[in-house]
């Protein structure tokens, strides 16, 4: 990759659940603007890894650096403030609130107006302009006033991305953004990912190989919590061990 300093880095990241090592000694670097994917068979510890990065889980040992700063001991909230955004594997929205309000909540937190007690939310024009711009980017302007729970599932995933983008992340962790979306429609996700600002580093975790291989510049293969191999999509596709362990597994799962 480029010679720039990594935006996200882990050193010897390890996590045990009881006696089981779900993440083992992972050294991982992500550079500004990089498009990276993590793949691995079921139970490879992909979501655990994302949770360790985002601060939802604390590692048993090892460190996480964000923009060169050691964030290992920092809360999820602090990491978000430092530019680490994530979406969830299972859709996590405010179901009864309108699409616009969903995004507004994130904008308000990010721009520091969420402690305003006495000014009406509706009068925060600047923030709403940003909300509308984000909705426009993910193509949800037409349903801005619809409660999030009334959106079809695929569009909820888009809203999820809009909410996360509202935080102006420098690193974006996407945990299975296409989960539950028919493969035929995953290109919508891809086209939105294409419109992301070029300086955001994106880490994608997904089962959809088509999506992963079209999106990523580099791919990291996680097996049993450890990095097995890392390389360009072409290298990964040609790797014998990956074919055997990962692709064999997914053939099996599909059968």
């Amino acid at each position: 990759m480029s010679g720039s300093a990594p935006i996200l880095e882990t050193r010897g990241l390890t996590r045990f659940f009881g006696p089981v090592r779900v993440t083992g000694d992972v050294d991982f670097t992500l550079h500004p603007g990089e498009r990276r994917a993590i793949i691995g068979p079921n139970g490879a510890g992909k979501t655990t890894f994302v949770n360790l990065l985002s601060g939802r889980l604390a590692p048993s040992s090892g460190q996480v650096f964000l923009g060169g700063e050691n964030v290992t001991a920092m809360s999820e909230a602090r990491r978000i403030k430092l530019g680490l955004g994530r979406t969830f594997q299972i859709t996590s929205l405010f179901p009864n609130l309108s699409v616009r309000k969903n995004v507004f909540l994130a904008v308000a937190e990010h721009e520091g107006v969420a402690w305003n007690l006495f000014r009406s939310a509706a009068s925060h024009r600047r923030q709403f302009d940003r909300v509308d711009e984000l909705l426009d980017r993910v193509g949800l302007s037409d349903v801005a006033e619809v409660p999030a729970q009334d959106l079809p599932y695929g569009r909820q995933r888009l809203l999820e991305i809009a909410v996360t983008l509202a935080l102006r992340p420098r690193v974006l962790l996407l945990d299975e953004p296409a989960a539950g979306i028919p493969t035929s429609e995953s290109h919508i996700i891809l086209s939105i990912l294409d419109t992301l600002p070029k300086d955001i580093a994106v880490l994608l975790i997904d089962h959809d190989m088509d999506l992963v291989f079209r999106f990523a510049q580099r791919i990291t293969v996680l097996v049993q919590g450890s990095v097995m191999v890392e390389g360009t999509p072409a290298e990964i596709a040609a790797n014998e061990r990956v074919r055997k362990i990962y692709l064999g597994e997914s053939d099996h799962a599909a059968a």
């Binding site: 909230a77 969830f88 996590s92 990010h110 107006v113 009406s120 996360t164």
Partner: peptide, 23 residues
């Protein structure tokens, strides 16, 4: 009706998500 009040609703609806947007 303030952003604060909206964030309270957000917490009621889904506190995990609120945490994840930095609240």
């Amino acid at each position: 009706n303030s952003p604060f009040g909206w964030s309270l609703r957000g917490i009621r609806e889904n506190d995990g998500r609120m945490r994840a947007i930095g609240c």
